[in-house]
Design a protein around this nucleic acid. Structure first.
Length: 411
RNA sequence: GCCAGGGUAGGGUAGUUGGUCAUCCUAGGGGACUGUGGAUCCCCCGACCCGGGUUCGAGUCUCGGCCCUGGCCCCA
């Protein structure tokens, strides 16, 4: 038997309804902040993804050549495509641009809990603004979205300038290695690293910085830095907004295009892959042929959010099953139309069996049976049977629709 | 790429020191049943992950692969 490719998943209706419900919360929250949806191609020129990350990431992407010999890749993320879109089409739009997206991405990696080869990201990009407010907005929006999904999470916010200041003058490759240790809070490895590279004097200040829990503490360690007042303003906005967050000056965020604010969110019960969101301020547009443009954004690992949420009480549809006697089909179709026009999910019998068998069938999943037999068809009525209580009455279609809607409203 | 534990109908399971036609539950389909309930009864469908090896004989032992679940690495 054919199987789905490794690291991919099928979704049955029950699960799709939950996913759409949560997705809807994310979309609606973004809409309320003024973020409008964009969509980019499922695949892009390979170069779009290697241009800043190097050839190394090719082995973790789905790369292929089309019939015209073009080197293409299934998108492994969405920030680069969205910025490419901005450079191609968005430069003459009034700034700032507030964009969001919800799309699938592909990475050729070893699957594990919360990590799949096809996965969905919900993200936003705020392009063309460079103020404390524009630094803070995506952080606040990310917190708002995650909160509205009902998730329990920790939001960590940091700024790259602190660590950069302490590592001034250190070889860039070494800086990255050090930042990775800080990100993981792997202090033994950090000590080793500093020791063997003749930088032992950094040990105390770096560890103190990462452990610091207030801006004042952090600035005490780094001394004055040019971005100080901007950073203070951003965090003061976050404080004023009431969003719960933790200062974390150790956040490294994988690659180097982040410029200032960086933030991440973590959920429980996710095992090793517990990061559900990451973002920051960055500069990318110039790499894709645009002007140097300040931007800021984040992406949420949608599948991880779904895993972390566990059971989601997806709103159950109220279901009406139409029980149709032979000869009443014409009237039944009109009745079905009336229910559907009223927004009610109505399913007609397909078996052609007897009334009793149809009711038995319908009662397995529907809330109401609408019985349309010869008697009802003749006088243009229906019999509405509440499958919960067993009560049934003959009435007009309008009355039946009203009655079902009334029940739907009070559930 | 590495490590650990797994893989028997759609789901869940039994299978002895290797020995009929592989157990049971559930789900699914059909019927008993042409004006009223999810029941019951009957019938049907449906599996040893794949391949080599040992053996008279492999679901069982052995090796390799694939896949699943976690973890490491990485994580744009």
């Amino acid at each position: 038997m054919l199987q789905k490719p490794r690291g991919t998943r099928d979704f049955l209706p029950d699960e799709m309804e939950k996913r759409r419900y949560i997705e809807g919360i994310m979309r609606e929250t973004s809409r309320r902040w003024g973020y409008r949806e964009v969509c980019t191609p499922e695949f892009e020129e390979l170069e779009l993804f290697t241009i800043r990350s190097g050839e190394g990431i090719i082995q973790e992407m789905y790369v292929f050549e089309d019939k015209g010999g073009r080197k293409l890749a299934l998108r492994p993320e969405l920030t680069a495509p969205v910025l490419r879109l901005y450079v191609n089409e968005g430069r003459s739009l009034p700034k700032p641009l507030r964009w969001c997206y919800f799309s699938d991405c592909f990475r050729y990696e070893r699957p594990q809990k919360g990590r799949y080869r096809q996965f969905w990201q919900f993200g936003v990009e705020l392009i063309g603004a460079d103020t404390a407010m524009s630094d803070a907005e995506p952080v606040m929006l990310a917190g708002d979205i995650l909160k509205n999904t009902g998730l329990t999470f920790d939001l960590h916010v940091g700024h790259l300038s602190f660590v950069k200041k302490l590592l001034e003058g250190v070889d860039p490759a070494m800086q990255r290695t050090i930042r990775m240790c800080l990100d993981k809070k792997d202090f033994p490895a950090l000590e080793d690293l500093l020791e063997t590279n003749g930088l032992p004097e950094l040990r105390e200040s770096l560890i103190a910085l990462v452990e610091s829990r207030s801006l004042a503490e952090a600035f005490e360690i780094t001394g004055d830095i040019p971005e100080k007042s901007r950073i203070e303003e951003v965090f003061s906005i976050l404080d004023t907004s009431g969003i719960p967050y933790t200062l974390n000056t150790g956040i490294a965020r994988g690659l180097d295009y982040y410029t200032g604010i960086v933030f991440e969110a973590f959920a429980e019960n996710l095992g090793a892959e517990n990061q559900i969101m990451g973002g920051g301020t960055y500069r990318l547009a110039h790499l894709f042929g645009g002007e140097d443009t300040p931007s800021s954004g984040f992406a949420i690992g949608f599948d991880r959010v779904m895993v972390a949420l566990g059971e989601v009480p997806a709103g159950k549809d109220l279901i009406v099953g139409l029980v149709i006697a032979p000869g009443s089909r014409e009237w039944a179709l009109l009745v079905a139309r009336a229910f559907r026009d009223a927004g009610i999910r109505a399913e007609t019998d397909l078996s052609g069996k007897g009334i009793g068998a149809q009711i038995a069938q319908v009662s397995r999943h529907a809330d109401f049976a609408v019985i349309i037999g010869a008697r009802e068809a003749e006088c243009r009525m229906v019999t509405l049977k509440d499958l919960g209580s067993g009560e049934q009455n003959e009435m007009t279609v309008d009355e039946a629709v009203t009655e079902v809607k009334r029940c739907g409203a009070c559930r």
